[in-house]
Nucleic acid binder design. Structure first.
Length: 163
DNA sequence: GCCAACGTTGGC
DNA sequence: GCCAACGTTGGC
């Protein structure tokens, strides 16, 4: 895939639930990103996330919160099976199996950042003042990242020019 | 644990 | 279609 088609994203996960280390330890260093129950985030996955897209892996509800690793999309949007599982906390009784409401993608870890980039670090960098994750009240768990923001965060994390 | 910000739900 | 009530997110 030509790099000029590649898009960049930030995906949040609570490390207590599924950390970047958990992703590194998973088989194939990959997982399915289940549990997204927000329409805007779903639409990003459905409409815009393509195989090969790069992902900033962000720890929310962490001490400190911030970007800890990079990953890539390895499978494009498909139905999230947990919506049909009555025992799952993500169960959605209103979702029609013939037209699943919720989707997920698969991602694979590429590398941990040698230096984690905390939310404070992101906020302190004037080049990143437009970045979604530093905006007040921004709760979206999947956010688009510009190529410039991607390059800057990787440089801050010690992976300048890679990925 | 608090609570501001935000998204969703449901009565009307 | 409005909007109050409610639930969730996530930094602090």
């Amino acid at each position: 895939m030509p790099t000029d088609d590649r898009r960049y994203w930030l995906m949040k996960s609570e490390p207590d639930a599924f950390s970047f280390d958990d992703l590194l330890a998973a088989r194939g260093k990959r997982t399915h990103w289940d549990g997204i129950r927000n329409y805007q985030a779903r639409n990003f996955m459905r409409d815009d996330m393509k195989k090969g897209d790069r992902v900033l892996y962000y720890h929310s509800n962490a001490k400190p919160p911030g970007v800890v690793g990079v990953a890539e999309v390895v499978k494009e949007a498909y139905p999230d099976h947990t919506q049909f599982d009555p025992d799952s906390k993500y169960h959605d009784a209103k979702s029609d199996p013939d037209e699943p409401r919720w989707l997920m993608v698969d991602i694979r870890a590429l590398a941990a950042l040698p230096e984690a980039v905390s939310l404070d670090d992101l906020k302190a960098n004037p080049k990143l003042e437009e970045m979604a994750v530093v905006q007040r009240g921004q709760r979206l768990s999947i956010q688009p990242v510009t190529p410039a923001e991607w390059a800057e965060v990787l440089a801050m994390g010690g992976l300048a020019g890679r990925f």
